[in-house]
Design a binder for these strands. Structure first.
Lengths: 199, 199
DNA sequence: CAACTTCTTGACTGGGCGTTCAAGAAGTCA
DNA sequence: TGACTTCTTGAACGCCCAGTCAAGAAGTTG
């Protein structure tokens, strides 16, 4: 059973990565197939043939977004001391860490945006969002547990509760930053959260 | 210039309040005019005559949502001690405080949902969201400043930074709770946040 | 009652949406 | 080369959407 035929003219992975950008900034509903055709320079039929319908395409984009963030998360959490890494993780989706000043308004976290727009009435979207949140809290909980044992992080609260709170903070910052970002105020707030973790 | 004519058969305020429910749970894009006609029992023409187009209608609903929450906020913040009130405020949009167990998945905060779906590409929505966030931080900052002076709240951080952080927490909790809510885990996280404010 | 104003009703419109599909192009394989 | 498979292209389709409008109903005013 040979799988021959005319080869695809565009790079599937790169196209999906560019679709992430579009879906991320505009959301699911406000991004039309025509927008994607224009931005990706791939015709409608090819998009449908390669990625299935719009929902599949979008959800694949969210999954890719999360995979990239999770890799970043795992790398960052594997450092000592932990608190500077946590600070970076919290500020990352809101692009607070970018040095350029004219970064424009950030798009927030794509998982959070999906939660607001498609959850709970879309079951598959709900599953993707739930999975991502769960991975975040699991990974951060482990890191906090280690940092508690070394005495870097206070054990006045359970690492699970601390991690859950950090999820709220990062999702909240991402969301609020869509409406415009006062960098200094945001960083002060994040530092307040990080300081509260200090032993 | 008399303003006579056939009187409106429905209650404008009550209808707007019911529209809040619908827009809140489904969002802007996923709520069609037909949905509103069906749910509100008011014909299309009357809705358009009374509330203008869909965007106006939605934004008025968001404004009403915020007004109600803000009144609640002002009342709650005017109490001593402050920390239990803050705890209640944080849990309120996620309906963590409701006693009934089958509350279903909460809709999150309607302002936050608007931020995810319409901001920043809709200027008026952005203004509504920005205004709401600003009011929240201003009101909470004042309350925290008073509570710092009485010694209830730690002065290890500026009240502005504490208030901004609480905005992130409440927005994050609201958003995350759309994907399903582990009440105990959420309350532990919120308690961790509140404890960090204690002097 | 008659004139006037506003509200109600629901059929209608035009447009944009997601999606499909047929015909041709570009490869592989024997 | 010729059969076969897959990809590309863009026109076409049907649907549902937000929004309009004309005709009638229900009030007020003098």
């Amino acid at each position: 059973m040979a799988r021959t035929g005319r080869p695809r003219e565009f790079d599937k992975d790169k196209t999906l990565a560019r679709a992430v950008e579009l879906f991320w900034s505009r959301g699911y509903g406000a991004t039309s197939i025509q927008d994607l055709v224009d931005a990706l320079a791939v015709e409608r039929g090819s998009l449908y043939g390669t990625f299935g319908d719009k929902r599949r395409f979008y959800l694949d984009a969210v999954r890719l977004y999360w995979d990239v963030y999770e890799r970043h998360l795992i790398t960052a959490l594997d450092t000592t001391p932990l608190l500077p890494a946590l600070r970076e993780i919290l500020t990352h989706p809101a692009r607070l860490d970018e040095l350029i000043s004219d970064v424009g308004t950030p798009h927030g976290c794509m998982v959070g945006n999906t939660s607001a727009e498609l959850v709970p009435h879309d079951a598959e979207a709900t599953q993707v969002v739930t999975h991502s949140y769960r991975r975040f809290t699991d990974l951060v909980t482990d890191a906090l547990r280690r940092a508690q044992s070394t005495g870097e992080v206070t054990d006045s609260a359970a690492p699970e509760a601390q991690a859950q709170l950090l999820l709220y903070v990062v999702q909240g910052l991402s969301l609020v930053s869509r409406a415009g970002l006062d960098r200094a105020a945001a960083l002060s707030a994040i530092d307040t959260a990080i300081d509260a973790l200090r032993a």
